[in-house]
Each structure stands twice: as C-alpha cells, then as structure tokens.
Design a protein around this nucleic acid. Structure first.
Lengths: 239, 239
DNA sequence: CTCCAATGGACTAGTTTCAGTCCATGGCGT
DNA sequence: ACGCCATGGACTGAAACTAGTCCATTGGAG
C-alpha cells in the first residue's frame, strides 16, 4: 500500500515527462531489445523510420543510439544496406547490481497478474485469422528451441504475441511494458536456471487453449504460469 | 484487428512523445478534471506544486493553465490563499462534435473490460485498512447523491477509488486513463439519461462485495456493470 | 565499371522547455 | 493598521529538442 492517503490527486496526476527525451528514447529502445523485439544479429529499422515512429527528431534518436552503441549493445554499418545491428551482448545482461525496490516488485507482479491472464482470455475469445494463429505458433516453436541465453527474450516475445492476438493496442503496450519491467527485475537476481521444461509445457498448453478458443482455460493456465516467476521474485526479495 | 501484420515492431515501439509538453500537460489536466479529481468549486494545487508533480517547468504549466482558463474551465485568484479554481462549466462538456473512431472504441472497451473487473477482484482480496474502506464508502455515498451534471465525474471517481484499493500505482493510472478515454467517448454521443438507479444498485453491490472480501463476486459484478456502458457505446456506433 | 539509392553522419537555424529570480497581490495574524 | 508570506505573474539566459539540409559510405543494378 502506498504511504499516501486515498483519493490523493497525485495518485492519478502522474508526471508528463519522466526525464530527457533522449533518456526516454534510450529506455524505449532498451525495452524493445529486452523484450526480444530485435533479436541479436538483426538490424533496427532505419534511423529516419525509427525517429518518425518514436515521435522524436533524428538528432535525438541518434544521441540515444550513440549511447547504446557505446554501451556495446549495437553496431553500426554505413552504406547502402547498412544499418544498426543488435549485438549478442545485448541479450546477456547478466546479474546487474542494484537492489530490488519492493514497491516496484509488488506493482509489477500485481499488474502482470491482471493483464496477462486477461490477454490470454481475450485472445482465446477472439476470432483469429490464420496469420495470427501462425504467428503465435511460430513464437512458441521459436521459444522451445531457445538456449539459456535467448530464453528470456523469446519468452517475452511469446507473451507479447498472445497480447497481439487481442488486437488492442493499449493491451499490447501494457503487456510489453510489464514484460520489460519484469525482465529488468529478473536481471537483478542471480540466475537460477528455471525449470525450462515445465515452462515450455505451460506455454504449449496456453497456446493450445487459445487456438481452440477455450478462454477460461487460457486464463487459468496463464495465471498459473505467471505464478512461477512471481514466486521466484518474491522469494528472492524476502531471502 | 489492426491492419498491420503480427509481430510488427511498431506495435510495441510506441511514440516517446505525443506532442508538445505543453499540449500533453493540458491533456493531463483535462483528464484529471474529466475524471472528477477536481470537482467544480475546488482549487488546484499551487502552480509550483503541480509543476513539480507533473515533471514540467512552471512556465510550461502556466501556458497550459492559461489555455484552460481561456477555454473557461478555470478561474484564477491572486494573493495569499488564492489559487486556480475549477469552474462549473468544466463539468458540463455536453455533446462535443466529432465522430467516434471505431478502433479507439474497441480498444478502450477491451482494455476497460480487462482492468476494471480485475481491479475490483484484487481490491476485494486485499487486506484493507479502515481508511481505505471509508474512502470507498465515501465515494459511493457521494456518487449516489449526484445530480445529472455531476454524475459522470463522480462515477469515474468511484471507479478510481476501487483501483486505489489495490495499492498498485500502475493499475490506478491505467484505470484513471481508461476512464478519461471513456468519458471523452461518452461526450460524443447524445446523452440518453442512463438508468442511474440501476447503476447505483450495481455500485452498491460492488462496494459490498469488495468490503466483505468476495473477490469472485466483485469481479463479476464489475464486469456486468461495465457492460451497460459498453453496450450503449457500441449501439451508438452501429446506429 | 559506373551510377543509383538507401543508409548513417554532420551541421545550422529556429523553437520549445527549463531553472532561477524577482515582482504583485491580498487574506490573516499580530 | 501593519507586515507576513503563500500564492499567481513576468522575465531572462541557458539547455534541449526539432526540422531541414547536405555530405559520406557502400552494396547492388545496369
């Protein structure tokens, strides 16, 4: 519970800006990478394209890219068919220092437990076109072939794919942001190799429920699935 | 369904900025007013305070306030114990022109149906302190005493109060934003005086379920309650 | 081999936003 | 009456951000 009283205006009236445009741009890009949107080896859209879609000037975007490049996440190649490439090191951001903020943890876990099962439920209710079904299946297959290093990103990717099936941009964004926040938290705890096999079984079951339109089941399965990570994080905080 | 394909980067990589700081500030303030955070007659926090909490310079905040003042939403009084007061006209933004975007409608209704019932559920599960229970009850009483003009804002206020009980800032913000978006949509349709009595019964039942900790019931009741407005909006879009 | 086109790189002028400072107003306590 | 002081009002110089333009690089098409 926040220490503020209830009905307090600033619980609703949040900051319009959370820092430099430049910093926020970095954060957006990092989030996209963390979440597996741009797998290592692939390249980002062109600067002009990215800048336009991020609603930021190319100059500012380039500042952000320069920072990420210096931090070793990106490599830039010039010329025709050049571009900005994601390096392997972008994925393996192992065990960064810094303690976990209990408030942040509570907030993320609560919100996640709200939207992800709901996303699965809505997705299962939707009338999915073939392309959607294929995309989900592809993400699942991809995830099941993942190695230790690529697992987290592909996991996020899969969960976002589920959200995409809902066709609700707000819901997609919410899931993506929550995934990024979760990943940031997971980066702060020593990596006990999770039970990937069990997770993969759950992913498969969730996919199945969604594809056959079993909304209630999809919801329940997703909720169970999330509980694993949640318990891990909570446990580490207390320990 | 969005026209873009699935797995498209820009479904996740959203704009960092959605306009001038100044415009966004206006939007934030308007949202707060629409949502009943500042009832007519009351005054806003001091400029210095507001600016700090909105993460915006006082100069920019003042630009926004000037705009809202010119639009007839606010009145300013100087001197000690002066301040910026919300005018009555701020509430009665009846029937603005402009068509409803079907995509926006779909998105809002989907998202709302996801988070609000969930918020009610989480609130019911929480171990609520006396102050929380009182606040919810107060919002309910306030709402039930509302006139035609003040109803929408107090309704929003009540729903946000439910979200506040969850103690999750992200969830609170999400509910508040969704409420503001819904209100904006409702402003665009002719006001058929909704069945306030029925709504009030629902509000009372929801409050009851939350206060006695019946999570499943709270969820169901909230979902039913939302369906009313959803049907109204959908119906108007098709008609 | 030459040119094309798409990409990153670099600069400039103009606009917006900011932090800080000082002024003006006017209830309230003394 | 008087002065205090929290409030809105106004200004300035610096920093951030932007739109636009042109340059540099380089793989592929002709």
């Amino acid at each position: 519970m926040t220490s503020e009283g209830f009905g307090h205006p600033y619980a609703v009236l949040r900051p319009v800006r959370s820092g430099n445009t430049f910093e926020e741009t970095i954060e957006h890009l990092l989030q996209a990478i963390r979440v597996g949107l741009f797998p290592p080896g692939q390249k980002l859209p062109s600067e002009r394209d990215l800048a336009a879609h991020l609603g930021v000037s190319r100059a500012t975007l380039r500042e952000a890219l320069a920072e990420l490049q210096q931090a070793g996440y990106l490599e830039v190649r010039r010329g025709r068919y050049g571009g900005t490439y994601i390096l392997e090191s972008a994925a393996s951001t192992g065990a960064e220092e810094g303690r976990i903020d209990p408030e942040e943890l509570r907030d993320v876990l609560t919100f996640r437990a709200v939207i992800e099962p709901a996303a699965a439920e809505v997705a299962a209710q939707a009338d999915l076109p073939a392309s959607a079904r294929q995309h989900l299946q592809a993400c699942l297959t991809d995830l099941q072939a993942a190695e230790q290093g690529s697992y987290r990103a592909r996991d996020a990717r899969f969960h976002i794919a589920v959200a995409e099936l809902t066709g609700s941009p707000t819901l997609i964004t919410a899931v993506a942001e929550t995934r990024a926040r979760t990943s940031a938290l997971l980066d702060k705890i020593p990596l006990l190799p999770a039970n990937l096999e069990h997770s993969n079984q759950q992913h498969e079951a969730i996919t199945g429920a969604i594809l056959r339109g079993d909304a209630a089941q999809a919801r329940t399965l997703m909720a169970d699935h999330l509980e694993g990570t949640a318990a891990l994080l909570r446990g580490f905080l207390e320990g």
